[in-house]
């Protein structure tokens, strides 16, 4: 991966698609991904759902090159994610489940980090963009705070602002609404959905929040124990007869029997 010195601002503004072909990954002999094949089309919101431990996040990390596959490949706009010049050519971003903000930097510095490090804009312009993006995620005036002063939800929104600064062609969200109250989750979900209208971006969202997934997705994939068990539009997935899919989609809390 090249650094700021060699980084050239990519001039493409279109959304890019991702293709996963025969992806396999094991950790310490335990197979986590057992041959994943899927295609995310340019410009769509693609949600990967599944129970905890099913391999969703590992799949997402492969899609941005943070993990090396044991077998198979990931193609971004037809090019392997492992190719060294890919990150220079396309603007990819990821919103981590924890936010993964740099704790030694302020919120403003975190949000502007990509522009600062790659020296893409003058400092005044960066400050303006940072303010604008923070306002967009409802965190106006938090520029000078440190991540340790923010709540979990606020950190996640800062992470989204940091991803938006990149003007991404592909943005990956790892559990963007987990640990959030329903109102904040709705705000984040709306933000992910509205982003599609504002900029040409492909969004891949990993979530086990069924409400959010069916609310924003163009297509959904359900993953179970490292295998994709269903792919399609929300309606198609809802109608999928597979018992695992139906169990995942229709299990609800039911404490009624305790009261009676």
């Amino acid at each position: 991966m090249s650094d700021a010195a060699t980084h050239s601002s990519p001039n493409t503004t279109r959304a890019v698609g991702v293709k996963v072909v025969g992806l396999r990954k094991s950790f310490n002999g335990q197979a986590v991904l057992k041959g994943i094949d899927l295609e995310v089309l340019p410009g769509e919101i693609f949600v990967i759902m599944g129970p905890s431990g099913s391999g969703k996040s590992v799949l997402l990390r492969h899609m941005i090159g943070l993990e090396e596959p044991d077998a198979g490949e990931i193609l971004v706009d037809g090019q392997s994610i492992q190719s060294p010049e890919l990150m220079d050519k396309y603007r990819l971003a990821m919103v981590f489940q924890s936010g993964a903000l740099l704790n030694s930097l302020t919120v403003g510095e975190n949000v502007g980090l990509y522009l600062t490090e790659h020296q893409l804009k003058p400092p005044q312009e960066i400050a303006r963009i940072v303010t604008e993006k923070l306002e967009l995620v409802g965190l106006k005036g938090t520029d000078d705070k440190f991540p340790s002063e923010l709540s979990g939800g606020m950190k996640k929104r800062v992470a989204i602002a940091r991803a938006l600064v990149i003007d991404p062609q592909l943005i990956l969200y790892d559990e963007p609404t987990s640990e959030l109250d329903p109102l904040s989750a709705a705000v984040i979900a709306e933000e992910i959905a509205s982003l599609k209208q504002r900029i040409a971006v492909t969004s891949v969202v990993v979530s086990h929040d069924r409400e959010v997934a069916f609310g924003i997705a163009d297509r959904i994939a359900v993953i179970h124990e490292g295998v994709i068990v269903a792919v399609g539009t929300p309606e198609e997935v809802r109608r999928n007869p597979d018992s695992i899919v139906q169990k995942f989609l229709n299990t609800n809390f039911n404490f009624h029997h305790r009261k009676t």
Binding site: D3, R61, M94, L102, Y114, H118
Partner: peptide, 20 residues
């Protein structure tokens, strides 16, 4: 930074951790 995924975040922003 490694444990709390900050280094991963740098890599996704095309910032080389060795340089940074």
């Amino acid at each position: 930074m490694r444990v709390y995924q900050e280094i991963d975040a740098l890599r996704t922003m095309n910032i080389n951790p060795i340089h940074y």
